[in-house]
Amino acid sequence: MNYKDVDPEGSVCSQPTASQTGENFHSRKVTFARSKHYGKCPNCEQLDLQLKKTSEQIQNIEELLISFQQQIEEQNLQNKKQIQKYEELLIEMQIISEKHHQELINNGILQKQNIIFRKEILKLEQELSEIQSKNQEPSKRTSEQKFIESLIQMFMSFHSKAQSQATPQLKQVWKWLKQIVSEYAILKQKEFQLHK
């Protein structure tokens, strides 16, 4: 059966007869289709329904294919954007990593320099304290030594026996001095009571 044998309403026509073949077939066919005085074959209606269903199925499949194609194109576009974003983030991360690495290197150098400077400062402070102690010690020593020597001489002048002996200890001299001061305080108190 030829697709040209379908009538305008979509039904399948019967097979052309021998009278329908020839040069006037086209004009006869149109007249035959318009007259609607022809008989349909028993399977024609089923074939029409199957053709309609098949046509609808094909149309649905085409729509699905178009929809899938659009989704795939959108997905590809999103993938391209995500890949581009990922590459940008990767470049940014590399830049940040390099900066951080450089900062760590700089911090390490600064820490080493800081340790060296601290050591130098401590050394200078020690040297300065030593110089100051050396500058102050002679004057302290001389004044303290003079005081101690004068005490020892006074002790030895009051004790004739001590002159023959070796130089007395500072503890012994201090004990003697405390005794003299306490005796002086007692005498002063007695004198104050007598005058009353």
Rank of each mutant, 00 (worst) to 15 (best):
K36A: 04
M93E: 14
E130T: 07
E63R: 15
S139L: 02
Q69M: 12
Q70Y: 02
Q71M: 01
L124R: 14
C44L: 00
Y38F: 06
S157L: 08
I83M: 07
L122F: 07
Q46D: 10
E73H: 01
E144T: 06
I72V: 11
I96G: 03
S97M: 06
N107S: 08
T54H: 11
K134I: 00
E149L: 01
K52S: 00
K81G: 03
S133R: 10
I91L: 05
H101M: 08
E74D: 09
S27E: 09
I109K: 08
K85Q: 15
N135Q: 12
S35Q: 11
L89E: 11
E56K: 08
E130A: 10
E62Y: 03
R118V: 05
I95W: 02
Q153S: 14
Q57S: 07
G108L: 02
E56S: 05
I148V: 12
E87Q: 11
K119F: 05
Q145I: 02
A18P: 00
L151G: 02
K146V: 02
K99E: 15
Q132Y: 04
Q69D: 12
T21I: 12
N43R: 06
Q126K: 15
L65R: 15
N43D: 15
N107P: 02
Q82Y: 07
F147G: 08
I109S: 03
L64V: 04
N24F: 07
Q69Y: 01
Q15D: 04
H26G: 06
C41V: 11
L89F: 07
F147T: 15
Q71G: 01
E130H: 10
Q132V: 02
E87W: 02
K119E: 15
Q113H: 00
E103L: 06
A18E: 07
E125V: 05
F68A: 08
L49A: 08
Q145D: 08
L128M: 10
R28K: 12
S97C: 04
T142W: 05
I66F: 04
Q20R: 06
S35A: 09
S35F: 00
E144C: 09
I121F: 08
T142P: 00
L47P: 00
N24D: 04
N76D: 13
K146A: 13
L47K: 03
I58Q: 06
N60P: 00
T54M: 06
T21K: 12
K53R: 06
